[in-house]
């Protein structure tokens, strides 16, 4: 039982980062019909900026995390504006190539500035506590709680503010939104910004317990894509539930069945769910 509880916590913690990154991918796809392969690299950049602020400017952890989110917010908006907006009317393949270009650019830039080797952010909360017999480090609990807070804030923003309505409206009918007077370009920018800020938050949250390296987002973005498909393309509740499910599958499958096939379970789940429900958990028919 203890073991199960421990693995469940492990899974939820894994899932928390998955959700935050997958939400970004999902939102960008919803608004812009763009599979954002570069998202893992924005995540990585977020971690580096937090690292940079803490080590070079002696920021403490939380201000650095928030400032990193702000920086990525602006970078995200800028990238939408100067890279993806001009490609709006172009084919999917141009967008795909642009995403790969951004990804390579970020990775090389980070490698040149900070080197190929890994860095660490000092853990602000290194103690661990016991919960029902399971040992959990404080920072891991913080990751879990902060993810919940961010998800809740995002939901409130989307469901309760007019700006949030415009995001949903644009996702549901882009031309319809433009015709009621919504500046859909600005909505796209904002979406990209929020998605990147969420990625920065996720990366900065786990950075103290993991390490930061230029390649840290590559595997994660694959998983975010899996969740995005699993949840039903563009579905926000799908991304949330899908992210936690994937984390739990990895932890429980990896813990009880075989650690070797940890990642196989994730992709296996994708195939299984798509076989049962081809549109994903929250997919909307053939629309």
């Amino acid at each position: 039982m203890e073991l199960f509880f421990q693995q469940t916590i492990n899974g939820i913690m894994l899932g928390s980062t998955y959700v935050l990154v997958a939400l970004g991918v999902t939102m960008i796809y919803g608004i812009m019909r763009l599979p954002s392969f570069a998202h893992g690299h924005f995540y990585m950049l977020g971690a580096y900026i937090t690292f940079f602020l803490i080590t070079l400017y002696n920021f403490s952890y939380w201000p650095a995390l928030i400032l990193s989110m702000v920086v990525l917010f602006f970078i995200g908006g800028l990238v939408e504006r100067i890279v993806f907006r001009p490609l709006r009317e172009q084919s999917q393949i141009s967008n795909f190539i642009a995403a790969i270009g951004i990804l390579l650019f970020i990775e090389h830039m980070v490698t040149v500035i900070w080197g190929p080797h890994s860095h660490r952010i000092p853990n602000p909360y290194p103690e661990h506590i016991y919960l029902f017999g399971a040992s959990v480090s404080q920072q891991r609990l913080i990751v879990i709680l902060a993810a919940v807070v961010l998800i809740a804030l995002l939901q409130l923003f989307i469901k309760k503010t007019v700006i949030g309505f415009t995001m949903e409206a644009t996702a549901q009918d882009r031309e319809g939104a433009a015709l009621v007077g919504i500046n859909v370009n600005r909505v796209s920018s904002l979406t990209f910004s929020i998605a990147c800020a969420l990625a920065a938050a996720a990366a900065s949250l786990v950075a103290p317990i993991f390490v930061i390296v230029p390649g840290m987002g590559s595997l994660l973005v694959m998983k975010a894509m899996v969740i995005f498909i699993l949840g039903g393309l563009g579905s926000i509740p799908g991304a949330i539930i899908g992210g936690y499910i994937l984390g739990l599958i990895e932890a429980l499958g990896g813990g009880y069945i075989s650690s070797e096939y940890k990642d196989v379970f994730a992709f296996g789940a994708l195939i299984l769910i798509l076989a049962i429900k081809p549109t994903g958990i929250f997919g909307k028919g053939a629309a």
């Binding site: 007019v162 409206a169 009918d173 031309e175 319809g176």
Partner: peptide
């Protein structure tokens, strides 16, 4: 303002939100 062919409503949003969005320029 154009009330477009095929209506182009926001199908998953409530009637109220659709109306509020209609007044987006006057928010």
């Amino acid at each position: 303002c154009l009330c477009p062919e095929g209506r182009r409503l926001f199908p998953q949003l409530s009637v109220y939100k659709n109306l509020i969005l209609g007044a987006y320029t006057r928010r």
